[in-house]
Design a protein around this nucleic acid. Sequence first.
DNA 1: GCCAACGTTGGC
DNA 2: GCCAACGTTGGC
Length: 158
Amino acid sequence: RLAPMNHWVFKTVPDDFSIDVLARAPGKKTRWYGVRNYQARNLLRDEVHKGDLVLLYHSSTVPSGIVGICEVVRAAYADDSAFDPASPYFDPKATAADPRWFMVEIRLKERFARLLTLEELRMVKVLHDMELLRRGSRLSIQPVTLRQFNAIVALAKK
DNA sequence: GCCAACGTTGGC
DNA sequence: GCCAACGTTGGC
């Protein structure tokens, strides 16, 4: 692929899915499914490419923060949890012909030695306009610039 | 548990 | 297509 690599934040509530689950998975690889917001869906389906790098964020924890880096190993394909009536992500309007929701596969690349809290991220000037730090930010798939990504990786090493 | 900020739903 | 009501998210 000739297009430059994209960078992302993926948010997850660790009670539902956490970096620990990813770390224990075969090949440290899992499907990233259950996105049920159209804006996030569109990013996942159209903009998240194989080879992109992802900052994994744990939300609804005290404190919340970024816990590591993943790599996208498979681009978007039908999220079949939408077809399963027993799944909390079931959507009766999703069909094989028109899946409506999509998932990708990610692999854990690096688990940070420590969690980077929102408070700490807010103190970094380069990160001031990050979507994650915006008041009322809820989008579960967020684009990140290379500058922001690099600043966060550098912060994790400190 | 509170509550602000969203997103979605559905009557009209 | 408007918009009020409702449901969900998520930091605190």
